[in-house]
């Protein structure tokens, strides 16, 4: 068990200065906090973590989490507890494109394992690893509510469904060409590939 969060952690103030929401983002964040009754702004933690993850390199470093804690005025441990509970928060750096392939029953029956194997061969990495150029990470995940269009994978906000190996190839090519970091909060889901 990797206990990245456990035990001694040095708190580096210099690093902290780099982790600050832009004014624009800060406005969104503050608007979000107003959705909840007086004193219940901790409710905004999950959505804000998504934003922080998208803004600060696709993962939640301890510094990022401490920063979110300070924004919400809660204890850092409260953020750690939450960030480590949910599967969409990356506690370690990942590639720009995190390819999340569903492996549960409906997808499995329609060839999800082939998709994973194909990705592994194509990218020369194993599930859970990141390509050397930092472009792709392969991850297998549980049902994403797309069972009727299996097999499928998610990358950022986009669902890629009814996959064939050719589709997977085209996908990788397009993502590589675009070269962008993909996040769940991406708005350009409509013009996906």
């Amino acid at each position: 068990m990797s206990t990245q969060l456990n035990g001694a952690q040095t708190f580096d103030k210099n690093k902290l200065t780099k982790i600050v929401f832009s004014d624009d983002t800060m406005q969104t964040v503050q608007k979000m906090m107003k959705r909840y009754p007086e004193g219940k702004h901790k409710s905004a933690l999950l959505p804000i973590l998504h934003i922080a993850q998208a803004e600060f390199g696709g993962w939640l470093s301890p510094e990022t989490m401490d920063y979110v804690a300070s924004v919400l005025n809660i204890k850092p441990i409260e953020v750690y507890e939450v960030a480590s509970f949910y599967s969409m928060y990356n506690l370690k750096p990942v590639g720009k494109c995190l390819l999340e392939v569903c492996r549960t029953s409906s997808c499995w029956t329609r060839g999800a394992e082939d998709v994973v194997k194909h990705l592994e061969k194509k990218l020369g990495i194993k599930e859970g690893e990141t390509t050397k150029d930092g472009m792709f990470t392969i991850k297998t995940v549980e049902c994403l509510g797309s069972c009727g269009s299996a097999p499928m994978l998610q990358c950022g906000a986009s669902y890629h469904e009814n996959l064939t190996l050719e589709k997977v190839d085209a996908l990788l090519e397009n993502y590589r060409k675009a070269g962008k970091q993909r996040s769940y909060t991406d708005l350009d889901y409509k013009n996906t590939l």
């Binding site: 409710s43 973590l49 998504h50 409260e78 969409m88």
Partner: peptide, 22 residues
């Protein structure tokens, strides 16, 4: 409100906890 990825948050009281940011 968006969740963070957890099937258990479909259980109604877990959902409420999650909605409270826990």
């Amino acid at each position: 409100q968006v969740g963070g990825g957890a099937y258990i948050c479909g259980e109604e009281t877990a959902l409420l906890e999650s909605l409270e940011g826990k």
